[in-house]
């Protein structure tokens, strides 16, 4: 057996963990905004698949990565619009409409893939951007400053989301819509209008999360390539207690443990692989139960709002 706790391995684990967390960050931070305003969107995985396909297809045809990212954003937003019409305007049960949206996205992305591309292909996606000077730093450099552009973008979304929620009027309205929609309404906030914005925004982020996979990290598209990643992203919102930095912590914990178990396997530690794969899931639950200070969920989460008479 090889040495496990060497600097190189630890750097490798941290580096992997940071990269693995990126798609979760996009999806979870978007979902968080929706939930803060009172809408639970369980369809993230389906939206991610649509985003992943849209981005991949555009890059496959044009080679323009930013156009691909934009396509994912638009397709994600459209899926969000559908979710908003059904869950906000029509006040549908959010748990079930989310599952419907998931199935729809899963099916449609595969169908489009089959008819428009037909076989697994690859594109050249966002490449690694070594940040000058900083990436030369020992340990810190290789861990933090040696990633794909989409990874930096994902981490940039953490403070941006924090600012949006805590320092803008819109953020205030979002939280009001999720905590006490009646009061918000009486103060002249259009609760459902705010919810439209958040759901569409969150879904656009989920679309980007899919693009981060298909044109950022993997550079291929395959049917159901997310394999349930979107559901983990929803779970991480609860882990993070609807706070951007909490979600960052959750995503990093989950991803780093996942990286750890991969490294443990790669270096031949004698653990059955099935049990190693379980590790991040088990630890996430334990960490939330015993280590993380928990926050009450937005009072109006999953409750549609309709103006009283």
């Amino acid at each position: 057996m090889k040495e496990f706790f060497t600097v190189a391995v630890l750097v490798g684990i941290a580096h992997s963990g940071i990269r693995l967390a990126a798609p979760y960050l996009f999806a979870s931070l978007g979902e968080m905004v929706g939930q803060l305003s009172g809408v639970l969107n369980l369809g993230v995985d389906g939206i991610m698949l649509m985003g992943a396909f849209a981005a991949f297809y555009v890059v496959f045809m044009t080679g323009n990565l930013w156009l691909g990212l934009l396509a994912a954003l638009i397709v994600g937003a459209l899926m969000g619009l559908l979710m908003a019409v059904i869950s906000v305007t029509m006040g549908a049960e959010q748990g079930i409409s989310g599952i419907g949206l998931y199935l729809f996205g899963l099916g449609l992305s595969s169908l489009l893939f089959k008819t428009m591309i037909g076989s697994v292909e690859s594109v050249s996606g966002f490449s690694t951007l070594r940040i000058p000077v900083l990436s030369e730093l020992p340990i810190i450099g290789p861990i933090f400053f040696d990633h794909s552009v989409v990874v930096y973008l994902a981490y940039l979304m953490v403070p941006v989301s924090w600012y949006l929620i805590n320092r803008t009027t819109l953020g205030l309205k979002i939280r009001a819509a999720g905590q006490n929609p009646e009061a918000a309404d009486s103060l002249g906030v259009s609760v459902n209008g705010v919810r439209y914005i958040t759901v569409i925004y969150g879904s656009a982020m989920a679309g980007i999360a899919g693009a981060a996979l298909s044109i950022g990290l993997l550079n291929v598209f395959q049917e159901n390539m997310t394999n349930g990643l979107g559901f983990i992203a929803v779970a991480l919102v609860y882990f993070g207690g609807w706070r951007p930095f909490g979600i960052l912590g959750g995503a990093l914990l989950f991803s780093t443990v996942n990286a750890l178990q991969l490294w443990a396997q790669v270096l031949g530690l004698p653990i059955p692989s099935d049990l190693a794969v379980m590790l991040p899931y088990v630890l996430t639950i334990i960490a939330l139960a015993f280590a993380v200070r928990q926050v009450r969920q937005p009072a109006a989460l999953t409750k549609p709002f309709e103006r009283g008479e």
């Binding site: 559908l82 409409s97 419907g100 729809f104 099916g107």
Partner: peptide
């Protein structure tokens, strides 16, 4: 799969 998703969405709506 897409059709199932549509059915769920339409019924819930």
């Amino acid at each position: 799969v897409a059709l199932q998703g549509l059915v769920v969405l339409f019924v819930v709506a």
